[in-house]
Structure formats: C-alpha cells, structure tokens
C-alpha cells in the first residue's frame, strides 16, 4: 500500500468503519430491545407484528438487503439514502432482529416467581420490566451481545460494496492502484482483528459490571475464557447458533 493511499484512504476508512459500527450497533440495540420486549407482550397483535418483523429480517441476507436499499429502493420510491446511511440502516435492522431474539430469550429466562412477585406488589408492566426483569436479564444478554457485536463489525465490511469508503474499500483501491494486494489485505485483516479485540475487552468490562450489579462475580459457571471471543457453555453455543436462524415463534 502506498503511503498516499494509506493516509488519504485507509486511515479515514478506519474511522468510517468505526462510525458505521457504532451507528449500526446503536440502531441494532434499539431495535433489539423494542422488538424483543414487544415479542413478550401480552397482546397477540403486538407479538404477531414484532414476530413478523423478526422473521423477515432474520430470513434475508444483510448484503442483499443493503444492495436493495442502495439501488432498488431509490428506483421504487424515488428517494435515495446517503450510501453510508443505507448501510447503517441495513445492518442495524438486520442485526437488531438477531438481537431481539437474545433480549426475548433472556427475559424469558428470568424466573416466573420474579414476575409474579412484581404483580403481587401491583407494579405496572413498565415498572416490572424496568425494575425487575431487565436488570436480571441484562447480565445474561451481554455475552451473546458481544458475539453479535463482532458479527456486526464483520458485517460493516459489506458497506464497501455500496461504495462507502471504509477500510475494505481503501484496500480495494490500493489493489487497483498499485497492482499489489498482499500488504493491503493483510493489514486490513489485522485491523479488523484488533478492533474486534478491543470491542471484546470493552464488553467483558460491561459483563463484569453487569454481574456485579446483581451480586454475581467471577467468570460464571461452565464457561471458560477463550483467547478472544467468550467461549459459551454447550447450551449457550446451541442458543447462539439459533439466534441467527431459528424459525417459528417461541
């Protein structure tokens, strides 16, 4: 990679990648909580609508959806997104759907007695969620959210396909300009790995804090630390495989 491309394209590209990651993670987090909580709602129509959203966005491919947003959407509705926001929307909505499964699953794993205690104390549904269910479900959510965040970071490379100048785009430029691809792509792979590493460190700190918040410490049971990603327990691994793709309600 020539120094020109490195300073003019690659370094700004790193910043774009970080921006896309942060924005789409924020959107995905919002969608995950709204849809995840709606899927535990007592009205069937709310459950049905949020469940349909979940099934549609989980069934589709992020890259196809992104290209559709960038190229088909403007032709269909005569209204165009800035490419970066088309990418952020596609990533946020898709990964938000995956995240909603994590939120729903963790909320359901809070013991029924806790919910009943809330009802007995005549808490409203909102109060119960905010003061009883979410605080207890939150530490459960952090490890799978960490893995989803890494998936999202990897997903941001797709924005280069709709010509957002992220670091993958810069490496492509370098390949075309210098006809030498090895240094650019090796640097690129390591850059993604370093960002993933930093994100995992941050999420581990979040997990420790969350666990301390409900009086649990230590590494948790049945899970040992991997080099980078959190190693999940057997049940956790099965659940994670399912969040992306499991069909049907429940």
């Amino acid at each position: 990679m020539s120094s020109g491309i490195f300073y003019e394209w690659f370094l700004p590209g790193v910043w774009i990648t970080i921006q896309v990651t942060v924005y789409s993670a924020a959107l995905a987090g919002l969608v995950a909580f709204v849809v995840g909580i709606a899927r535990t709602h007592r009205l069937w129509i709310v459950r049905f609508v949020s469940g349909t959203y979940f099934e549609i966005f989980r069934g589709t491919s992020a890259l196809v959806f992104m290209l559709w947003m960038a190229f088909a959407f403007p032709l269909m509705f005569g209204w165009q997104f800035v490419p970066m926001y088309a990418g952020v929307l596609a990533l946020g909505l898709t990964y938000g759907a995956y995240g909603s499964e994590i939120v729903r699953g963790s909320l359901q794993s809070v013991s029924a007695a806790q919910r009943e205690a809330g009802i007995a104390l005549s808490f409203t549904r909102g109060q119960r969620l905010r003061r009883i269910e979410l605080p207890q479900a939150w530490p459960e959510m952090v490890p799978p959210f960490n893995n989803l965040l890494i998936e999202l970071l990897k997903g941001t490379a797709l924005v280069s396909v709709i010509s957002v100048a992220d670091m993958t785009f810069a490496a492509g430029l370098s390949r075309l300009a210098t006809n030498e691809s090895a240094p650019a792509y090796v640097l690129l792979l390591f850059s993604y790995f370093v960002i993933a590493f930093v994100l995992t460190r941050i999420m581990r700190a979040v997990e420790r804090k969350a666990k301390a918040g409900i009086g649990q410490g230590g590494g948790g049971k049945g899970r040992f630390r991997g080099l980078l990603a959190l190693k999940l327990s057997p049940e956790g691994e099965m659940r994670q495989a399912k969040t992306g793709t499991a069909g049907g309600q429940g």
């Binding site: 990897k154 280069s160 790995f193």
Partner: peptide, 9 residues
C-alpha cells in the same frame, strides 16, 4: 473475528 468478505478478497 475477521470479515468473510475480506477473506474472500
């Protein structure tokens, strides 16, 4: 921990 897209490239 690295994107499939980049691995394909």
């Amino acid at each position: 921990n690295t994107p499939l897209l980049v691995q394909l490239f």
